[in-house]
Simulated assay, not measured.
Amino acid sequence: MNWWQNVRKDPAETRTATSTDRPALAALLASSRRRYGPLAVEAQIALLNGGVSAVGFDGNNATGFLGLSMREPAGNPAELWVDIALVALAPGYAAQRTITQLLQAALPALRAKHATGLVCLSAEEWLYDALTTIGFVEVDQVIGYAHTSHRPVPTSPATATLRPAGPAEADTVLRLNAAAFAPFWRYDPAKMLTWLLTADHAVLAEVEDGRPVGFSLTTSASNSEYAQLIRVATHPTARGHGIGQQMVADAIRHSREIGAPGLALNTQASNTVSRRMYETLGFHSIGRAAAVLVYPL
């Protein structure tokens, strides 16, 4: 039997999702046993209003939802990547076939916006199998690392001056982020600014002439949760001098000061330089690696 035959029935209608589909999506999320992505109402509303997500129906009941979030264009020439932010399937509908139908419904809007491709970051086997079957390709993995509080705080040479970063440094942080990461790995300016404004420990690294060459953003945590180093970046011209290591060591010290049991972060499996640095500082890998899947358009 072919994979597309492993389904009890097809949705009678598959189309672009709109805000009017909110009740149907809520019911689908409540009944779905195969679900990926955030359940926050605000996130769902944003996906419904984005104009590129897709939903399937059988009568009045939603059979599947493919929530897509468009990033801002980045790079020159500009790349416009679209994240798979939420997937939900009703019981009795095969993942591969349902997601294929939802993707087909979303493609016209994506191509009209000249999207570069779709991206999904997932460690869930059912979603990985479905996406790779319909043409997604694994291009990397994201690995979690943690530095626990029982390990000694690493020392690092003070090769740069670290000072607090705030709203006044927003443009500098955005410039450094754009310089440090390829378009595929950049976050949207809006997300970066949100992180900068909400991080309880935002740091800017400057060299002797006062030139900013890096930044780090760390979120707070309760005593039962790891603090999160959500972003650390060094300008390419300043790499190799221990500035990134200095900022990570500073984030570890901050996690101790707030009483967190440790500091956690993520990095790409292909980023061997960063992985070596984290392991040298006493980090160990945690959890299951998440596959980075891409569907070029």
Rank of each mutant, 00 (worst) to 15 (best):
T132V: 15
L89K: 12
E79S: 13
P189R: 00
L66K: 10
A251Q: 03
L263Y: 04
A251I: 03
R275K: 05
G287Q: 11
A249M: 02
L103A: 08
Q268F: 12
T280R: 15
V207C: 02
G64L: 00
A179F: 08
Y128M: 14
Y36I: 09
W4H: 13
L80M: 08
I252V: 15
S222Q: 06
L127P: 06
D140I: 02
A30Q: 15
A95Q: 05
E42A: 14
L204A: 02
G244C: 06
T234M: 10
R175V: 03
A85L: 00
L110K: 07
H114P: 00
K9T: 11
L102F: 10
E225S: 08
T18F: 01
T194A: 13
D83E: 14
T133V: 09
S222M: 06
A30Y: 10
A26C: 10
A106H: 13
L103H: 09
A165H: 10
G92P: 13
L48S: 08
L121Y: 12
V232T: 09
L131Q: 03
I84C: 11
V232F: 14
D250C: 01
L131D: 07
L297Q: 10
H284V: 11
P77L: 07
L28V: 06
W81D: 12
A233C: 10
A130P: 07
S149K: 01
A24D: 08
A165W: 00
A264G: 11
I252K: 10
W126S: 08
L48F: 05
A115I: 02
A170M: 06
A168M: 04
Y145D: 04
H147E: 03
A179E: 14
Q44V: 04
A264K: 11
A290R: 15
A24H: 15
A105R: 15
L48V: 08
D140C: 05
P73Y: 12
R288I: 05
W4I: 13
G59K: 09
F57K: 12
G51W: 00
W3V: 13
A291L: 05
V41P: 08
K113M: 14
A106Y: 15
L80E: 10
M247P: 01
Y278T: 00
G51C: 05
M277H: 07
L118K: 01
W185S: 09
V41K: 13
N266Q: 10
D83Q: 14
A109Y: 13
